[in-house]
């Protein structure tokens, strides 16, 4: 049945007769309206990239970041409402801090992801709140090696080799499925992500965008989550543009 006008889609605490919670689906819509975010887990680390749409040319370069560090060894990429996502980032930082205080060691990526997901989930339980209008990709390195998780408004928390969300989710997924993750290095993943982001960007609907790249690697960044340095980023972008031109020829 359709959701609109049914009256079952007004509150997050209401099921429809066929068992759906439409408000959560609508929150996912907010994610799907946002710039694409993808991440690749390689043998030595994780790379995450975001297509950050620029609404005005008077904005300062690099503002409204959609990739944030949460702890030394964990970072997140964002699709959806940035203001909502910042709350998740704050929460994630507090969780990381609290874990370190209690157990004296860095929080495992899986534990952090599940705690953030638990927060998202309780916001789908009560009519007095709305779900988070954002999805986040959590990437990091812990004792188990590189980790990549995606947390959605529903509160689901799933590990991936390659994940995508936002506008170009499906197109990006098709590209990601071609990758042999276990043979890739983070350096190659940076280029690959740049290529995918450039290819899924819709120049007609969204004018301007900035590619934001973050990475963490056991060898390249010594296990710290960092933004990708300028020279690597511009290499990746020119590689992406060339690949795009070749494909168009």
């Amino acid at each position: 049945m359709t959701s609109v006008g049914s009256g079952y889609d007004l509150s997050v605490s209401t099921y429809s007769p066929d068992g759906k919670i439409f408000q959560v689906d609508y929150a996912n819509k907010a994610v799907e309206n946002s710039g694409t975010c993808i991440a690749i887990k390689t043998k030595d680390g994780v790379v995450v990239g975001v297509e950050k749409l620029i609404p005005s040319k008077m904005l300062c370069h690099g503002s409204n970041r959609r990739i944030h560090a949460v702890d030394l060894h964990i970072g997140v990429g964002i699709s959806g409402f940035l203001a909502d996502a910042r709350q998740l980032v704050l929460r994630a930082r507090a969780e990381a801090k609290s874990y370190k205080q209690i157990y004296g060691q860095p929080i495992p990526v899986k534990v952090l992801s599940q705690r953030v997901a638990a927060l998202c989930h309780v916001y789908t339980l009560y009519g007095s709140v709305r779900a988070f209008g954002c999805s986040i990709i959590i990437s990091g390195i812990d004792q188990e090696g590189p980790q990549l998780y995606q947390v959605e408004p529903s509160g689901s928390c799933i590990g991936y080799f390659g994940a995508s969300m936002g506008k170009g989710k499906q197109a990006a997924k098709n590209e990601l499925e071609k990758i042999k993750f276990n043979e890739m290095t983070t350096h190659e993943a940076i280029k690959e992500i740049a290529k995918i982001i450039y290819s899924v960007h819709d120049e007609v609907k969204d004018k301007d965008f900035q590619l934001e790249l973050g990475w963490i690697s056991t060898t390249e960044t010594k296990g710290q989550f960092n933004m990708v340095p300028k020279d690597l980023q511009s290499d990746a972008e020119s590689y992406a543009k060339n690949a795009l031109e070749e494909a168009n020829m």
Binding site: R93, A94, E95, K97, S98, Q101, I102, A118, L119, V122, V129
Partner: peptide
């Protein structure tokens, strides 16, 4: 201020 308590039993103060 950013300390979160995770009780072994009982509910985390999510809100």
């Amino acid at each position: 201020q950013d300390y979160i308590s995770h009780p072994v039993f009982g509910q985390v103060d999510y809100f």
